[in-house]
């Protein structure tokens, strides 16, 4: 299985606030991730993981530096073009699920296809297939309020995959879940990453999930300190998953 650079972040800076209150969150951060693998970005709370993920997603502008996703320089694209790029190539999984409460599971899952302009019927059919893939075929007509946290995150995974994007970005996907549901979610993400041309980037500080990573970038205070390139290395540096 060939791997190529799916994400390349080069010397990115990002600060928040103005004047005295201005604090640098990303400091000349350099990071990369390859297709065909599940890459984890780990580090203590507040070190800048979400900020980096948002910049890779093109939902946040870096102050400077280069951001390349699937060979496209996001930092050089207009915001509408970035939105289009996101709609086609990226799938998102958020810590808070972010499902729309008034839509059914199938409708929520169909949203990325609708954004891309596909007809509703096609989108809903695809959504049901995606729900079946996460083992929730029988919950297609449920609204979020009627589902458990684990089910909601699986609906979110179906939504992230329904339009078959190449890059799946996940921010703390297991931290609102108990460990059993967390494991189930990670297994689905693994399965998703195992497909050719697909890559999954998981931001987390949940060490129970470390064993699902193919590769791990350790972040601290806005910088990538160390990259562990194999599961063996990860297990060596994080025995018992801590």
């Amino acid at each position: 299985m060939g791997t190529s650079l799916g994400i390349r972040v080069q010397a990115v800076n990002k600060s928040f606030g103005r004047g005295e209150a201005r604090t640098a969150v990303l400091k000349q951060t350099t990071f990369s991730a390859e297709t065909g693998r599940l890459t984890m970005l780990v580090g203590p709370s507040g070190c800048g993981k979400t900020t980096l993920l948002s910049i890779i997603a093109g939902t946040l502008h870096a102050d400077d530096g280069e951001i390349e996703v699937l060979g496209q320089r996001l930092d050089q694209m207009k915001s509408n073009a970035v939105a289009k790029f996101r709609a086609k190539n990226l799938g998102f999984i958020f810590q808070q699920f972010n499902l729309i409460p008034t839509l059914t599971a199938a409708e929520n899952v169909s949203v990325p296809l609708v954004i891309q302009g596909h007809p509703y019927r096609y989108a809903e059919k695809k959504a049901r297939d995606a729900l079946a893939w996460v083992d929730l075929a029988d919950h297609a007509n449920f609204r979020p309020a009627k589902m458990s946290g684990g089910q909601l995150q699986r609906v979110a995974i179906a939504r992230a995959l329904v339009h078959d994007p190449q890059v799946i970005l996940c921010d703390e996907p297991t931290s609102s879940l108990d460990s059993e549901n967390g494991q189930q979610v990670m297994e689905l993400l693994r399965k998703a990453a195992a497909q050719r041309d697909r890559m999954v980037l998981v931001v987390t500080h949940d060490n129970r999930t470390y064993r699902f990573a193919d590769r791990m970038a350790e972040m601290e205070d806005g910088r990538i300190l160390r990259v562990l390139d194999t599961q063996e290395e990860i297990r060596m540096h994080h025995p018992l998953g801590e």
Partner: peptide, 18 residues
């Protein structure tokens, strides 16, 4: 109340026009 959902739609690629 729906800010989060609109933001999610935006993140998923919905344009300002949409």
């Amino acid at each position: 109340e729906n800010t989060r959902h609109f933001a999610a739609l935006r993140a998923m690629g919905a344009s300002s026009g949409e």
